[in-house]
Design a protein around this nucleic acid. Sequence first.
RNA 1: GGGCCCAUAGCUCAGCUGGAUAGAGCAACGGAUUUCUAAUCCGUCGGUCGCAGGUUCAAAUCCUGCUGGGCUCGCCA
Length: 551
Amino acid sequence: MLNLRETIDRQVSLALKGLLSLEEAPLAVCSPSRPGFLDYTLSLPMKLARTRHRAPVVIAQELQPAVADMACAGFVEAVAPGYINIQLSDSFVADELTSMLGTAPAVLLQKEANGQKIQVEFVSANPTGPLHVGNGRGAALGSVLATLLETQGYDVDREYYVNDYGSKMKLFTASIAHYLFPMLGLEYPMPAEGYQGAYVPELAQAIHDRRGSELSSLLEEQRFAIIEEGGKTLVLASIRRALEEMGVSFDTWFSERYLIENGWNDRVLQQFRDRDVVYEKDNAVWLRSTDFGDDKDRVLVRHDGEPTYTLTDAAYHFNKFQRGYVKSIDVFGADHIGHIVPMQALMKSLGLPDDFLEIIIYQIVHFLRGGQRVVLSKQTGEIIELADLVREVGKDQTRVFFLLSSADSELEFDLEAAKENSLDNPAYYLKYTHARLCSVERQVRGIGAGVPSEATPADILFLKTPEDRELLKCLLKAQDEVDDAARTRQPHRVLYLAGELAKAVNTFYQKEKVIQEDAGLVRARMLLVLASQRLLQAYAHVLGVTLPESM
RNA sequence: GGGCCCAUAGCUCAGCUGGAUAGAGCAACGGAUUUCUAAUCCGUCGGUCGCAGGUUCAAAUCCUGCUGGGCUCGCCA
């Protein structure tokens, strides 16, 4: 589809070329009109009033003829206090509808490939336990952002960073050992701050079942290696399963251990040394990150010789850069808010491009049941694992409810509303609307009326009621909005767009009959039905939800 | 104390190149059904867009200050 705002802007600046000065030209941009007005609006006359010392409405009248001459313009009017309203021409609208009908939904909103590789890293929870319901928001946002970026022509890779190295991992291994050693007739103390969940003894049992005989004959160090590997593998499998049930998959599961074992920390440390941005203090190696905007210098190598997370993170992103991504977008929970400044300082100190790393932070999710906020703890017996949440409310409902507000805002996830099989539930509303559109199509085919495969300007002449026009506007502005959502990295906007389209469809459906006497009108309305159906499917593709053909 | 996020209708939230009367869903009330799926639709009610300044022809939107809430400030990851 065309981005209409861009298209019109281009035509406007061409049309007004001789009428605007160089300084004035950039002001000639249109915006979508409010309901009740024509399709697009230019507020240019208002902006020119000051420098031109004329009343805006007079300027509007002067510019109107040139604007009306544009190829895409149908009816154009200058109105007080100084707007130029544009209605798209019938042939232009017909061309757009034709292209919508001739394009598969999965690529309807897709631009041409731009040859750039971009990475979205999300979830990346430690492999030391099952995913928590809170991780679900990152999963939903990250996966939708990834498809959203694909619409912009990027070659997108979805990556999960597996933090399988370091003190958390040691703690995890020790916690399993505490339950596993007694099965070998040995003892091992539960470490302070050890992992507590019921899954820990289960992991111990599973590892013992598989490799118990081996374990008893090994040295302690080898034993721990097996426990760690076994625990990690089992947990990652459960994480992967939970995500798949939510419709989320990854291209790459990238191991932190891999980085370290393959010398990436050393490489990046050398890079820091070459750039002369490190120093030694208290037996540790420090990065002079304050030179790059950080509020304090960071330790890269601890006094005991172990790398810090900071060093490995630098190595990780350096590695991403080497893999050829033009950009890495990392999606983190609000508890990582403090990482933005240090990480950007890291990128700078490594000499990576300023815009290489983008960090998206999503705020906390509160879960509601019976109108009350749910306290997630073992004591309350409330669901706490993502897999349980998806099982309880369903894949599509889970995805939709995690997208109900902007990542910047805290989110209330109403478990009962999400489960509800009624149209108060936005996920169901989308499904129902799609089923209804499909039903109309079946009916029309059933009575033997022609189902159009392309639109002509004559068809558009039939679409004159407010409901027809509003639905048309919803269809035509899709690419504008999707491009905006992608540019501003706001996946939730796609859900709102889909909801808006569904609303327009249902209002149209209620008010205007598709099947009726006038064959020309049937055909024209069918264009709306089919295009709406395609567009709804296109949105659903981006959102990762499934739309049934009947309910 | 520093950094970041938030504050819009009774509730949950949209509103992103600054534009015309501030929107949706829920809740409340009232309507539409010999149905192309009423699992729908329409209408009414409901807002000093946290407060105070500023920029602008124009501010929910941009800037400054303040108030309230959230997250966060490790040689953890």
